[in-house]
Amino acid sequence: MNIIGLYNYWIVVVLMMIGFYVVIAHENLIKKLVGVSIFQTSVFFFYISMGKISGATPPILDDHYQLYSNPLPHVLILTAIVVGIATTALGLALVVRIQEAYGSIEEHEIQDQDTQDQMESRLEAYGFRKKHVLSVQNLDE
């Protein structure tokens, strides 16, 4: 069993880094969220790996078995998965609203529009009138 020694962990690290890279390098807001979930899932995998004992069974007590894997990482990761889905759901809701407000979910396009907003408010500070911006919020209420 020891052949793979740390192999498992190294793969986990590679996975984490792919996820992490997707989060910070990509500009599409949905893709970032996919990256986050890959990143997190890999961390979960890391926790579960450390709870494993070779030749053991799942920690559901039964007279037939003696050796059980460690239940504590499982409990932690159950919680973490829930936190993960909660974050994803909220993030997606935000993405939907951003799409409605900006007409895009690409980071740089949003930034361009924000810069324009900022220019306008800068002009406004020096006495120019701000263009009317239709916000989706108005439609909602």
């Binding site: 984490m16 992490f20 989060v23 910070i24 807001l29 970032k32 986050v36 990143f39 997190q40 961390v43 890391f46 926790y47 450390m50 973490a80 936190v83 974050t87 909220l90 993030g91 935000l94 993405v95 609203r97 951003i98 407000a101 900006y102 949003i110 924000d114 907003d117 911006v133 916000s135 989706v136």
Partner: peptide, 26 residues
């Protein structure tokens, strides 16, 4: 509307932070 992007940005950064924290704890 910038509140939305601000919130999203915070969400991404915050989640990365939290994930780093659980890696550390782990």
């Amino acid at each position: 509307r910038r509140a939305l992007t601000a919130s999203y940005q915070y969400l991404i950064m915050g989640t990365i932070g939290a994930t780093f924290i659980i890696i550390g704890v782990g």
